[in-house]
Simulated assay, not measured.
Amino acid sequence: MYTLKVEVNSVKEVFDVLPKRLVHWINSIDEREIQKIEEIRIRHSQALELDVNGRVMYLPGKGSQQGVRDEEMQYILNQLSNYSLYTLDEELKRGYITIKGGHRVGLAGKVVTDQGRVKGIRAVSSFNIRIAKQTLGVADRYVPRLIQAGKWKSTLLIGAPKTGKTTFLRDIARIISEGFPSERLPAKKVGIVDERSEIAGSLKGVPQHTFGPRVDVLDACPKAEGMMMMIRSMSPDVLVVDEIGRKEDTEAIVEAMNAGVRVIASVHGDDWHDVRRRPALEPLWEGNVFERFVEFAPHSKPGTIAAIRRPRDVTQAVSK
């Protein structure tokens, strides 16, 4: 029996940072459409742009003279920074701010640099609010295929952007930390290295998404360094990381495996053929580091899994 899929985040959680006029525009559309909003793009003097389940919508209408005003841009910036932009210097260097609920606000505008390095963003001209939607239970049905003899298998999630990898990764972290009684899996210690604040959506170090009681998060920390920090300081049973791809990531994963830690990670790619060709990831194939490969179907509903493979499936296909 599997958990009912439940969305625990809402677009209305972002209304606290928006001017009343923009909130009124959004509330003017159908409630079912509101709950499908994935991004809210706010540009100075332009109409509000919504990404509604992949469909673009403009409010109050494309080409409308009622664009977002200067004072409304300033209002959003004040709400995000609590009227002190300098308190967000570190976040602005990364180009985004995480707000309550785990939603991420990207910013664009005048970039300030020092000796070629980004110091922050001033004179903000655009905001992009990405709605964080955690869906509980999306990974439940696949748990039996990701374990063996009562133990979690190191797993690589493969998929193109917006195919549901991070949502699945987040749910797996929750399941591991809570335990899974139907498969007699006890709760395990989970270390999440969240370089881009997308898995846990932490605000001031506190995860905004729902996890079990045995989760520790390193927020805004580079993956390779973070994995080693977690192993040294928090002794996780399972490490969870998003979007690997650098040589340093590969080396850290191999080190984690040698330390007896399981790894659940994701990577951009159309399928394992695509990922298999990347030189930086070659050590992962040579050492059969991952024991399961979950491929997400492109051009389908997010969360659609095309295949779950084992190392022998990949090895046999390569040798043909």
Rank of each mutant, 00 (worst) to 15 (best):
Y58D: 05
Y58Q: 02
Y58S: 06
Y58F: 14
L59W: 04
L59C: 10
L59P: 03
L59Y: 05
L59I: 07
L59R: 08
L59V: 10
L59D: 10
P60V: 06
G61Q: 13
G61K: 11
G61F: 02
G61W: 01
G61D: 05
K62T: 04
K62V: 04
K62L: 08
K62P: 05
G63M: 04
G63C: 09
G63E: 11
G63H: 05
G63K: 08
S64I: 08
S64Q: 06
S64T: 12
S64A: 05
S64D: 06
S64E: 05
Q65S: 12
Q65H: 04
Q65G: 11
Q65L: 06
Q65P: 05
Q66A: 07
G67I: 05
G67T: 13
G67L: 04
V68N: 05
V68L: 03
V68F: 07
R69V: 03
R69M: 08
R69H: 10
R69I: 03
R69D: 08
R69E: 13
D70L: 13
D70N: 15
D70G: 06
D70C: 07
D70Q: 11
D70K: 15
D70T: 15
D70R: 14
D70I: 07
D70W: 05
E71T: 01
E71C: 01
E71P: 00
E72P: 14
E72V: 03
E72S: 13
E72Y: 01
E72T: 02
E72L: 02
M73S: 00
M73H: 00
M73Y: 00
M73R: 01
Q74E: 13
Q74I: 08
Q74S: 06
Q74A: 08
Q74W: 01
Q74K: 15
Y75P: 07
I76K: 04
I76G: 09
I76C: 09
I76E: 10
L77G: 11
L77Q: 12
L77A: 09
N78D: 12
N78P: 02
N78V: 00
N78G: 12
N78A: 14
Q79E: 14
Q79P: 03
Q79G: 01
Q79M: 12
L80C: 04
L80E: 00
L80G: 05
L80N: 02
S81V: 00
S81D: 02
S81N: 14
S81P: 00
S81K: 09
S81Y: 11
S81E: 02
N82K: 15
N82I: 03
Y83V: 08
Y83L: 09
Y83Q: 08
S84I: 14
S84D: 15
S84H: 13
L85D: 03
L85A: 10
L85G: 15
L85H: 14
L85N: 06
L85P: 01
L85V: 14
Y86R: 10
Y86D: 08
Y86A: 09
Y86I: 09
T87W: 10
T87C: 10
T87G: 12
